[in-house]
């Protein structure tokens, strides 16, 4: 014979839990994709006088670490693939944001900047941390 407390647990909410699980899976998948556009572990040089920029909007964000190791979105690229990717962009006015680590030697950043320039892109921006 069942007790009253056993019956209470069997309220039919399993379908709702299914939906909540689906929601959880959705958020897990989408949030990781968004996070990868910006390499958060990258130590940018600090700026004190430049106004913070809007991170939204259509722009290509290139993360550069020493090596140079280049990541765009979730993809790791070499210089050649970076050029190929940028040449495919139809709008050459698309802003290109180069997020290079502050401690990097300029010669490595120059390789990336040269590749971007050679691809015909005209609007280039260098990222710095605006947090004081």
């Amino acid at each position: 014979m069942r007790k009253a407390s056993d019956l209470e647990i069997e309220t039919p909410i399993t379908s709702m839990i299914d939906i909540v699980f689906l929601l959880i899976i959705f958020f897990v998948v989408t949030s990781t994709i968004q996070k990868e556009a910006i390499d958060r572990d990258l130590q940018l040089a600090k700026s004190h006088y430049t106004d913070p920029a809007n991170l939204e909007g259509s722009k290509v964000i290139i993360n550069v670490r020493a090596g140079p190791s280049i990541t765009v979105g979730m993809q790791r690229l070499d210089l050649h693939n970076l050029k190929v990717m940028l040449r495919k962009l139809k709008n050459k006015e698309t802003p290109i944001v180069i997020r290079a680590a502050g401690g990097m030697t300029y010669s490595e950043v120059d390789l990336v900047m040269a590749a971007v320039g050679e691809s015909g892109m005209t609007r280039i921006r260098l990222a710095a941390s605006a947090e004081n």
Binding site: V20, F27, V28, R40, V97, G117, G120
Partner: peptide, 27 residues
Amino acid sequence: FLLLVYFILTFKIEPLEAHMTVNLPSP
């Protein structure tokens, strides 16, 4: 509660960034 804990743990404040415009030599 699990959902709440998950979103609290994964929440990160957008980092403030400055984007400086420079001109590069023509290719």
